[in-house]
């Protein structure tokens, strides 16, 4: 592999804009996410963070600007195509498949990495059976990784909220992503669960997956992120290491109030 490619950012947003009616949810936002890092995106409610995720994952089409992932543009792709390219995400209000077991939820995540269609499923053709076994193995592996293997057969709704968030991450990991987008993974979690989550996110990064997380919880962001992007009213306010951000006067004024970050 060429050196330039190694150094190229995994994700690059270039002058992204999106408005709804008269509201500019995202205004000319540009940033890069280098391979192997954890990038945090913070900002007050309505700063455009979730919109940014929806733009990257193809749920919305950008009004202007471009997104490059792994050297190719994501322009014009719809969500399932973005997922096939290797971008996985979670949702702010946990979106699990309520009528499935924990294991099945993760198994759905293997969808883009498997092929069996109606015919081969209906007639249980041998390649479909082999594939199904591989899906189960991989899903079980992921449940081990996220520490939910003992709950594999439980309905997903029976998990406490904190573990539902973890399960959602597990489902995203099942797609074998290069990039994982986490939308406020710590919201609704207590301090202990948040620390646990932070450790999981670091382990995910160490396994070679690049992570972007949108977050309100400062302790988590400051602890795990390599880089932080601050958004306000749809615009980029600042970008830098957690330490830089903590000391950036503009950030302190706009978002954190007068007190410096702990």
């Amino acid at each position: 592999m060429m050196v330039e490619e190694m150094n190229a950012p995994l994700l690059k947003a270039d002058n992204l804009s999106k408005s709804f009616g008269g509201i500019h949810a995202v205004r000319q936002v540009s940033f890069e996410v280098p391979t192997g890092q954890i990038k945090g995106i913070i900002g007050p409610n309505g700063a455009g963070k979730t919109t940014l995720f929806n733009l990257i994952t193809g749920f919305y089409a950008a009004d202007a600007g471009a997104i490059y992932f792994n050297g190719r543009t994501l322009d014009g792709l719809v969500p399932h195509q973005v997922a096939e390219r290797g971008v996985a995400r979670t949702f702010q209000n946990v979106e699990l498949f309520d009528r499935m077991t924990v294991l099945e939820n993760v198994m759905v995540g293997r969808h883009p990495k498997s092929r069996a269609g109606f015919i081969s499923a209906a007639f249980r053709l041998s390649h479909a059976r082999r594939e199904e076994n591989n899906i189960i193995n991989k899903a079980t592996e992921i449940l081990n990784f996220i520490g939910l293997s003992e709950r594999a057969a439980s309905p997903s709704t029976s998990l406490p909220f904190g573990l539902q968030r973890v399960l959602e991450i597990g489902r995203a990991l099942a797609t074998d992503p290069l990039l994982l987008l986490l939308d406020e993974p710590a919201s609704g979690l207590n301090a202990g669960e948040t620390r646990e989550l932070g450790r999981l996110i670091c382990r995910i990064r160490d396994s070679g997956i690049t992570v972007v997380l949108v977050e309100h919880d400062m302790s988590l962001t400051m602890e795990v992120c390599d880089q932080i992007l601050v958004m306000d009213y749809g615009r980029t306010l600042a970008e830098g290491s957690p330490r830089d951000i903590q000391q950036d006067p503009e950030v302190i004024a706009a978002y954190l109030g007068d007190e410096p970050l702990a």
Partner: peptide, 24 residues
């Protein structure tokens, strides 16, 4: 099967199904 899970996924949460790579 894979298809059956995908169908149930659409019913439970279409956004999550799409984000999981299902061409809903």
């Amino acid at each position: 099967s894979r298809v059956g899970r995908a169908l149930r996924a659409i019913h439970d949460s279409e956004p999550a199904a799409r984000a999981s790579g299902i061409y809903t």
